[in-house]
């Protein structure tokens, strides 16, 4: 029969991997590629099907664009390294397997389960005029009247509060990845280094960190992309004082009802994410081991 040959080819062992990745490909196509293409069309085409850069120009020339870009990159540059260092420190601590280290790890991971808006509101209630911090300081007699941590006169304070909240909320994701990475490093390497007389600091620098590179890479990519999307915490604590790109995309879509300009913002975020991810992949590539 003529149709058996292709059928047999489809059922062959060679085809099996393709069958196995098919669901992923379909998933990515439906939930990622199609929306990306739609966003591209929205950002670059008018309703009557004309190609245009009008929406892109509208975004770039918008009065909030410069500040939004600046604040997004600034927060990224502060939050991500800070989280990486903290997470690495806690991960190394957990990896010493001290008594109660598991409980400690779970406690550190609690913020992972809290939605970002809820986290923003929790920190807002700490910093606001009649919030916990002001009440505490007032109760101790340290201040006479509340300090306005979150006000337009104090953008530095506002940024600091956002960094603190974001640090508390999202360090755990980096931590979990690094702990998993550390646990995959075989003890043999460390013991060998010890035999050769490497001090703890040298073991960390020359053995643990290089072997942790793949995990660091994944953690950095995930965390950077999430930091670019940072939005709810910023809105809860910074209102309109601290505009960010993701927030502008939301405002344009929801408040200003312009899906075209909102898509332009979304695409910009995607391009920045892709560039940074490419950078991490390029510059944090684990070195080949030469024998």
């Amino acid at each position: 029969m003529p149709c058996t040959r292709p059928l047999r080819a489809l059922a062959s062992e060679k085809a099996l991997p393709y069958w196995l990745i098919l669901p992923t490909i379909v998933y990515v196509a439906v939930f990622f590629l199609v929306p990306v293409v739609q966003a591209l069309l929205l950002a670059f085409r008018t309703q009557d099907g004309q190609w245009t850069t009008r929406f892109l120009m509208r975004m770039v020339q918008d009065i909030q664009f410069g500040s939004a870009l600046r604040f997004t990159l600034l927060l990224l540059a502060i939050v991500v390294p800070l989280q990486l260092v903290t997470a690495l420190f806690i991960a190394l601590l957990v990896n010493t397997r001290f008594r109660g280290s598991r409980t400690f790890l779970y406690m550190c991971a609690i913020p992972l389960g809290i939605s970002d808006l809820a986290a923003g509101l929790i920190w807002f209630s700490l910093f606001t005029q009649h919030g916990y911090i002001n009440s505490f300081l007032y109760g101790l007699g340290i201040i006479e009247r509340p300090i306005f941590f979150l006000s337009a006169q104090n953008t530095g304070w506002v940024l600091g509060s956002i960094v603190l909240a974001e640090h508390w909320r999202a360090t755990a994701i980096v931590l979990v990845i690094l702990v998993a990475g550390l646990q995959m490093i075989s003890r043999d390497y460390l013991e060998a280094a010890e035999v050769f007389g490497a001090r703890p600091w040298q073991r960390l620098w020359h053995v643990t960190l290089p072997l942790l590179k793949p995990s660091l890479q994944s953690a950095l990519i995930i965390r950077t992309i999430l930091a670019l999307q940072m939005f709810a915490v910023v809105v809860a604590m910074g209102g309109r004082m601290v505009p960010v790109l993701a927030g502008e995309a939301y405002y344009w879509y929801y408040l200003y009802r312009n899906a075209n300009v909102a898509s332009a913002y979304a695409l910009l975020l995607m391009v920045i994410s892709a560039l940074l991810a490419w950078g991490y992949l390029r510059f944090l590539r684990p070195r080949e081991v030469h024998s």
Partner: peptide, 20 residues
């Protein structure tokens, strides 16, 4: 559909003039 952009003109003017 552009009623939101009307509000934005006033809000942005406020942010730029009064806040910044």
């Amino acid at each position: 559909a552009r009623g939101g952009e009307f509000n934005k003109v006033y809000l942005d003017s406020f942010t730029e003039i009064v806040i910044r």
